[in-house]
Amino acid sequence: MPIEITRTDDPGLAARLIANDRGAYVMGGGTGLMRRIHEGDQAVRHLILLSGPRLRQIAPERGGFFIGAQASMADVLAAPEARALHQPAASVGAPALRNMATVGGNLFARPPYGDLTTALLALDAEAVTASGSGEDRRPLALLLEDRTTRRLVLGVFVPDQGGARLHYTKMTRSHPRGASIVTVAASLARSGGRVTMARVAFGGLAGAPFRASGVERALTGGPLGSETIATAAERIGDGITPMSDALASGWYRLEMAKIHLRRLLGTAQGSPS
C-alpha cells in the first residue's frame, strides 16, 4: 500500500494519529524512518510531518532548559544553553547526519543508537509530551520504559545540574565516528570526598538506553575509590540482556561497558568534584 503523508502544525492531531494508528510515525529528521521505508518495512504506513516553532526551540526555562524534539544535533551543538549536551551530540553520526538527526528521533532510535538519550538519562531529563491541547512532563526514563503507549514528544527539559557533573564516553569500532558498542554517561555530585548522587546510564548495551540503578547504588555514599568503581562495574549487567548484533556480541558489549565505566570514573576521580 502506498504510504500516506499528513502535514500539520497541530500537535494534538499528531498525538492522536500516532496513539491510534500503529502504522503512523512522526517524522523527525527521517534518518531512521527513511531507511525503513527504503527497505520495504511494511510497518511504516503513515508519516506525520509536524511543524511549529516550539519544536525547534532551544531555550532556558525555569529550573533548566528546554530542547524542542525537532532540534537537530547540529542545533544542539550551536546552542550555548545546551553545553552539557555538546559532547554527546558531537558523538552522533557524522556531519551530514548531525544536520538531520533530531533529539526526538534519538529517543526512539533503534539500538545500538541513542547516544544523546543516554546522556539525557544521566542528566535526569524529562520528556515533554503532548497531552490534549497542552503539555505533560514525565521522567525520560519512564517514557522509555513504557513501550506500549505511543506518545508525541514535543521536547525534553533538562534540569539545572547544581553541583553535579556529566562524564560521557562512547566506544565505537570505526573511527572517528561510528555506532556505539557501548555509551556511558555518568552524572556525579560529590561533597566532602563522598559521592552524594550518581546517575549512570548506558546506551548501545541493551535494547534501549537505560539507567543502571545497581551501579548508582554502589557508587553513592562513599568516596570514589578504585574499589568502589570496580564493585559498581560488576552491577552493570543486573537485570539486562546485553544485545548482540553484527558489530559486537552481548558478552563483548558488557565487558567493554565495565572497562569504559572504570576508565570514565577513573578520570572523574581526579577531576574537581
Binding site: P2, I3, I37, E39, G40, Q42
Partner: peptide, 9 residues
C-alpha cells in the same frame, strides 16, 4: 521500487 517492495511483502 516502493511498489515492488510492497508486493514482495
Amino acid at each position: 521500487e516502493q511498489a515492488a517492495l510492497d508486493a514482495v511483502a
